[in-house]
Design a protein around this nucleic acid. Structure first.
Lengths: 234, 234
DNA sequence: AATGTGTGCAACAAGCAGTTGAAAAATGCG
DNA sequence: CGCATTTTTCAACTGCTTGTTGCACACATT
């Protein structure tokens, strides 16, 4: 009762516009009753509230240690209401992750199709755009990148994306000296890249997105020591 | 009752020698009563049983999803007995991890002090020895490397070890072009290395430890494409 | 204003964590 | 062997979390 009054009078009114903007381009054509319920302002508000609360809690403790009751209490929402929107806390976590990924691919659409001077320059631009996007949503990415549960999801997504985009020439048929299989390269690169992001976010993003992109590119193409600006070991 | 008979007659008897060999060099001088209780054959047997059971369960599900009751039931041990040995499942996980690390540092002591032809050759030898050790205990490392909880612990341990051993020249004072800080390099390298191990173990260790060590070294010193045996992109 | 939908509330069953005390079993030692 | 010590079992208990349900009320949509 008290909660209701507080939430509706103080928070919900100003939040309405925001929510509508956020989902402005959402699917209006799916007129199934299941989706219709998703359109309700109150429901969207509650979901956003739960998502934001989860982010806040993730900054304090590991995802596995967070309980549904805890999320509901801090969001000033009844616990039963939580279960009316998400099957469990993992479903909520997934929704959080998925929306971030969607936003990322959206933000990366322009640097992807604009042709650049060289192959390498294109990679640098793409990476820089990624870091810029991450910086914009740093509050979200910081907690995701620090939680093992999300990191695993990020790794899978990134690896899949890498293996598609890093499509390499058939190669390897000419040189009998066997090179590292693409599979290993993709899997390890994904984790390595996540580590770069994690360090950057945990340390307050002390370097520009372009600087980070440069280091990443140099490391991949020329090795660690080159990237660190150190003469090769004798 | 039934459990007791089965465990003691079938398992415990043959297990005695094994356990005594395992802990043969353990601390016999600490005569405190707390340690005395640890020396008891039954207690050591139970702890080993619980550890092995956890490994078996880790192959089936995430660490966070495993319950104490589950471990106890499969180990054919009363749940109360578990709590007389470990505070919770995390303490059991830590003991598992710590023993693996101790064994690893022990196995790596010889390649560490034997001087090699070159700096690079020394690194390769050390990495190859690591992969060999991991192969020997692959059943344990496979489940650890696949579980986020253990991976986090491995990362911290490895990063600390790297930052000590990768002591680099002061550098960076001469070149105004700033190189990647050592901090980033260490953190990202640790995760990258764990990914290499994970891929290797998940795919049935299809390449020799030395081959893996070679790829790792090449990647670090010359970049990804060089390691993959691919001509540099134009 | 009427209807459908979202939320609050309270209670519920089921499961897990961690503890406790006493009885039973196994071990170590003289 | 026999006795004292240590370990294990067993049963029960508290407290907390999960996921569900029925009902009343508030809100949104038309």
């Amino acid at each position: 009762m008290r909660y209701t009054v507080a939430k509706l009078s103080i928070v919900r009114q100003p939040g309405r516009n925001k929510n509508q903007l956020w989902n402005a381009v959402a699917f209006d054509d799916t007129k199934g009753k299941l989706m219709r319920k998703n359109q309700d302002i109150r429901a969207r508000f509650t979901r956003k509230l739960l998502q934001d609360t989860l982010i806040a809690l993730l900054a304090e403790k590991r995802f596995e240690m967070i309980t549904v009751g805890e999320i509901a209490e801090r969001a000033m929402v009844n616990r039963a209401t939580f279960y009316r929107h998400y099957q469990d806390k993992y479903a909520l976590g997934n929704s959080l992750f998925q929306e971030a990924i969607d936003q990322l691919t959206c933000d990366l659409s322009s640097p992807l199709k604009s042709p650049s001077a060289s192959e390498v320059e294109g990679v640098i631009t793409l990476l820089a755009a990624s870091f810029t996007h991450i910086a914009e949503y740093s509050r979200l990415y910081r907690v995701m990148v620090m939680n093992a549960w999300f990191t695993t999801k990020m790794h899978d997504t990134l690896a899949e994306l890498l293996s598609k985009r890093l499509r390499l020439p058939p190669s390897s048929s000419q040189n009998a000296v066997e090179g590292m299989p693409e599979e290993i390269a993709v899997a390890s690169l994904a984790n390595w890249f996540i580590s770069m992001i994690r360090w950057w976010l945990e340390n307050g993003m002390p370097y520009s997105p372009r600087q980070m992109a440069l280091w990443c590119t140099t490391f991949i193409s020329s090795g660690l020591f080159q990237a660190m600006g150190i003469p090769l070991p004798h």
